[in-house]
Amino acid sequence: MNAAARLTETRPQDWPQAVFGILSELGVRQVAIVPDAGHSRLIRLCEDDPNKRVVTLTTEEEGVALLAGAWLGGEKGVLLIQSSGVGNCINMLSLMQTCQLPLLMLVTMRGDWGEFNPWQVPMGQGTEPALQAMGVIVRRVDEAHLVASTVLGAANLAFNTSRAVAVLIGQSVLGAKNFKELAKPR
């Protein structure tokens, strides 16, 4: 069963498994990450796959450069980051635009739907315009059952046309964190 067919077989909440299947079928080898809770299931699947190399970064722009090198050497990759990390990538994205290199970014959103932490809001709201200012094509997905098909479309667009493409995965898919529930009662 190919990735497109598998999309209809997967329960919405199992989107990380569906996305993992798509990445595997496309031959993605290098998985560059700055962890986010929203990516944790997908990261675990990638770590358990001997055909993928998970590269933990100290800052997100390292991943942009890593995947430029991967493509120059004939490998596909994916960058898994949180929206706050998009701001760290900005100048490095000039590599993709200048050299017509493909880049697939899966960005879990903060500072948006249901956000509790005000410090996440500036970059969360700036994520889409910042990416677009650097020539990255942005697709947003706010419903779990549409994540996998959006990633498949973005990956094909990126690797078939040598473009940078970002999928923004909304907090309505991931569940918004409530710090009050985690804090000691006053």
């Binding site: 090198g69 991967a70 100048n91």
Partner: peptide, 16 residues
Amino acid sequence: GAMGSAAMIGLGLALA
């Protein structure tokens, strides 16, 4: 351009 990218481009290439 892309100042700060050289070493990581090297890593992506080395792994590939």
